[in-house]
Design a binder for these strands. Structure first.
Lengths: 217, 217
DNA sequence: ATACAATTGTGAAAAGTAACACTAATGAGA
DNA sequence: TCTCATTAGTGTTACTTTTCACAATTGTAT
C-alpha cells in the first residue's frame, strides 16, 4: 500500500551478526566432512561442536532457504556448497597484501587461503630493502605501483599488515584503487566510505578482552 | 528477601559485549593522547573516531562508575588509567606462545605487547629443527617442557599459532598447565572448560564475512 | 552576576537477537 | 503397515542491546 509496505516485501535484510556466523559454520562443516568423514549432520551436532544452540543454527540458515530434511538433518556437501554460494565464495577473490614485515611474511606463506576462496596476487611495501624480495612465490612491489596493479587485476579485497602510522594513508590508497573489503592488522580505527567493509585483527585487543575475566592474584 | 533477591544486589554482571568494546576505547584514547596530544575528550569525539554512538560509550562506561565531568568530558589520562584497572591491565600478563612457524615468528617480534600489558615469556614448538632457535630474544623450547615452565612462571595467557590438527591437543596441555585465556589462530573451534576464555583469529573467516557484502561481477 | 553552550549519566523506549516450543516430515525398526 | 525417535523450520516469547531524550552540571563569555 505505502512505499514502506512495498519496501518490506523485498525485506531480505539479513542481520550482520548472522552473516558473521556463516563462515564459522562453513569451517565446522568442512571439519566434520574432512576429519570425521561425516556425510550428514544435524543442527544439534553442528551446534555442539561450536558451542552454539541448535535453534540458532536453524534460524540462521532459514534466512536463506531450506537446506535440511526433517528427521535426517543436513547433507554436509550440499550445505557447504550453499554457504559458499551465499557468501560469494563460489569464485576466487584476488587479494592484495600490503606490508612485507614479519606479519606480511606469515600471511604470504599461509596455505589456508587458496582452499577457502582467496588467493594473494600482489604484495606491496614501501621499504626499498624489501621490494624485489620474493615471498610465498610473489615479488614484493613498491607501493607506488599499488593503484595500477589493483585496478588492472580488479582486486577488491586487501589485507593490511603495516604499522599504525601508515595504515590510514594506505587505506585511502586502497579505497582509491577500488578495494571494497579490508582486513586490517593495524591497531587503529580506519575511516572508509560506507560501501567499504573493514574487519580488524589486533591480538592485543583480543587478549585485553579476556583479562577482564581472569582472577588477578 | 529470597536468595535471588540477594543475588540481584550484587548484580554487577557486565555484558560481554560491553567488555569487548573497552579495549577498543583504550586504543582510541591512547591514539588521541599520543597522536593528537589531547588531554581531554568527550563521548562524542571518541565515538566519532570509532564510528560508535556517543550514547553507547557513555552507557558502557556507566557500568563501572562516573569517569567524566558534565560540560567538560573525560580526562584522557584518567580514563585510560581506569580502563586499564577495569580490564586488569594494571599489571603485566606473562604470555606463552606456542608455534614457531611464520606466524609465531611474527608474533614473537611484534612490538605492541609490552606497552599494552603483555609480555611473551616462553615460545614452544615440537619441531626439533626449530627448538633452540632464538626468536624475539627467546629460545624456542620443546613442547614437552610446556607444562613445567607455565606452572613455574604462573602463565595464565597463551597464544596458539599451530596447525589445526595440533590445536586441540595443545589446548588440553595448556588448560592442564593452568592457562585461563587462549588466543587461537587455528581455524578450528576449541573445547575448553567453562572457566577458560578463548578468542579466535582466523583471517579467512574475517575475509569470508566481508565477501557477502561485495558485488559479484 | 547571568546566560548559554557543552556535556555527562540515566530511565525509558525502541530495536535487535536468541530461545522456546510446537508442527510436520522423515526414516528405521517392530 | 504402524509406531516411534529424530529433526527441520518457524511463530511467539523472552531477553539483550542500542538509542532516545532530558535533567543536572560545568565552564566560559558577556
Amino acid at each position: 500500500m505505502t512505499d514502506e509496505t512495498l519496501l518490506d516485501e523485498s525485506d531480505d535484510e539479513i542481520p550482520d551478526i548472522v552473516i558473521g556466523r556463516l563462515p564459522v559454520y562453513l569451517q565446522a562443516l568442512t571439519f566434520l566432512a574432512e576429519e570425521e568423514g561425516k556425510l550428514t549432520t544435524s543442527s544439534h551436532e553442528l551446534g555442539q561442536q561450536l558451542g552454539i544452540s541448535s535453534a540458532q543454527i536453524r534460524k540462521d540458515l532459514s534466512h536463506f532457504g531450506e537446506f535440511g530434511k526433517q528427521g535426517t538433518g543436513y547433507h554436509v556437501g550440499y550445505l557447504v556448497e550453499q554457504l559458499r554460494r551465499i557468501l560469494h565464495l563460489d569464485r576466487e577473490w584476488r587479494v592484495a597484501l600490503i606490508g612485507a614485515g614479519y606479519l606480511g611474511h606469515a600471511l604470504a606463506h599461509y596455505g589456508g587461503f587458496g582452499r577457502r576462496g582467496f588467493s594473494i596476487v600482489g604484495i606491496f611495501d614501501n621499504d626499498p630493502t624489501k621490494v624485489g624480495q620474493v615471498m610465498g612465490g610473489l615479488p614484493v612491489q613498491p607501493v607506488e605501483q599499488l593503484p595500477d596493479v589493483l585496478r588492472q587485476q580488479e582486486v577488491k579485497v586487501a589485507i593490511l599488515a603495516v604499522p599504525a602510522a601508515a595504515a590510514q594513508d594506505i587505506t585511502d590508497l586502497l579505497v582509491g584503487a577500488g578495494v571494497k573489503a579490508i582486513l586490517s592488522y593495524a591497531p587503529i580505527h580506519l575511516n572508509v566510505p560506507a560501501d567499504v567493509q573493514v574487519r580488524y585483527s589486533d591480538p592485543v585487543v583480543q587478549l585485553q578482552q579476556m583479562t577482564y575475566y581472569l582472577q588477578t592474584p
